[in-house]
Simulated assay, not measured.
Amino acid sequence: MELLDPRLVTAGALGALAVVGLLIGSFLNVVIWRVPRGESVVSPPSACPGCGHAIRPRDNVPVVSWLLLRGRCRDCGRPISARYPAVEAATALLFVLVGLRIGWSPALPAFLYLAAVCLALALIDLDVRRLPDAIVLPSAVVVPVLLLVASLVLGDIGAMLRALAGGAALFVLYFGLMMLKEGAMGFGDVKLAGVLGVALGWLGWGELVVGAFAAFLVGGLFSIGLLLLGRAGRRSRIPFGPWIVLGAAIGVACGEAVWDWYLGFLL
């Protein structure tokens, strides 16, 4: 599906997306830390884990505050992880890239939401080896609803039907893999694949097929690399969530072009 609209590709619009991404990224840092621990993302306010002092508003400006504080707490001098500004900057970059790919389309909110959620889930999976239902299950509702609204606005119900087919296909594929080999997949991976299948299917069959294949390709290459370097064994459990997310990103970015090239090569 061709979505790019030149009206969005302006410095002002992309700058606005970047600013929104920075703000969302700051919130994602809270989500990534608290959700796996079953804590509220609303209260209490963020505080330094060293001295317990609440973070001042002026010290909570995305990226900028970390740079001005030189990566340390204002009160106790404890180092602040560089991952905090990295997540904020990465979210801003993702929002800009999504804007460039999707354009000024009714589907833009769905893909911005998905970009933020996927970044959080990928990092959580790396940290704790699971994908929390508190994030995945709401996404299984929010993404289809937003895309349904986009389909109605665009008058393209076929895209929504394709989205549902894509979500079902990836859910069944991952569920089958989970049942086929114990430990190969977690049910969180299955549910996430279903959500991403909806988004990829909405864009097109090429995005869906390439996004699904790319997850296994990049995940497999990474696993082989770890084995060759002696960083993992045959029985090591490597979180697959980040690779599902990366594969989907590849599908969104270039799935249509790769699929067209592949079909042209075959024919």
Results as ranks from 00 to 15, higher is better:
Pro132Ile: 08
Pro132Glu: 08
Asp133His: 06
Asp133Gln: 09
Ala134Cys: 10
Ala134Phe: 04
Ala134Asn: 07
Ile135His: 10
Ile135Gly: 07
Val136Arg: 03
Val136Trp: 11
Leu137Phe: 13
Leu137Ala: 15
Leu137Asp: 12
Pro138Gly: 11
Ser139Gly: 10
Ser139Lys: 03
Ser139Arg: 06
Ala140Glu: 06
Val141Leu: 15
Val142Tyr: 06
Val142Ile: 15
Val142Leu: 14
Val142Lys: 09
Val142Asn: 07
Val143Arg: 01
Val143Lys: 08
Val143Gly: 01
Val143Ile: 13
Pro144Leu: 02
Val145Gln: 06
Leu146Trp: 10
Leu146His: 03
Leu147Cys: 10
Leu147Trp: 09
Leu147Ala: 04
Leu148Phe: 13
Leu148Asn: 02
Leu148Gly: 14
Ala150Pro: 01
Ala150Gly: 07
Ser151His: 07
Ser151Ala: 15
Ser151Lys: 03
Leu152Arg: 12
Leu152Trp: 15
Val153Tyr: 13
Val153Trp: 14
Leu154His: 10
Leu154Ser: 12
Leu154Cys: 10
Leu154Met: 15
Leu154Phe: 08
Gly155Phe: 15
Gly155Asp: 14
Asp156Glu: 15
Asp156Leu: 03
Asp156His: 14
Asp156Ile: 04
Gly158Tyr: 06
Gly158Glu: 13
Ala159Ile: 07
Ala159Val: 07
Ala159Pro: 00
Ala159Gly: 08
Met160Gly: 01
Met160Phe: 15
Arg162Thr: 07
Arg162Asp: 04
Ala163Met: 01
Ala163Leu: 05
Ala163Val: 00
Leu164Met: 13
Ala165Pro: 09
Ala165Asp: 09
Ala165Gln: 11
Gly166Cys: 04
Gly167Arg: 06
Gly167Thr: 00
Ala168Lys: 05
Ala169Asp: 09
Ala169His: 05
Leu170Gln: 08
Leu170Thr: 10
Leu170Ser: 07
Leu170Val: 04
Leu170Asp: 02
Phe171Thr: 10
Phe171Gly: 00
Phe171Lys: 03
Val172His: 11
Val172Gly: 05
Val172Tyr: 12
Val172Pro: 05
Val172Cys: 11
Leu173Phe: 15
Leu173Met: 09
Tyr174Glu: 10
Tyr174Gly: 01
Tyr174Val: 09
Tyr174Cys: 06
Phe175Ala: 14
Phe175Asp: 13
Phe175Ser: 11
Phe175His: 13
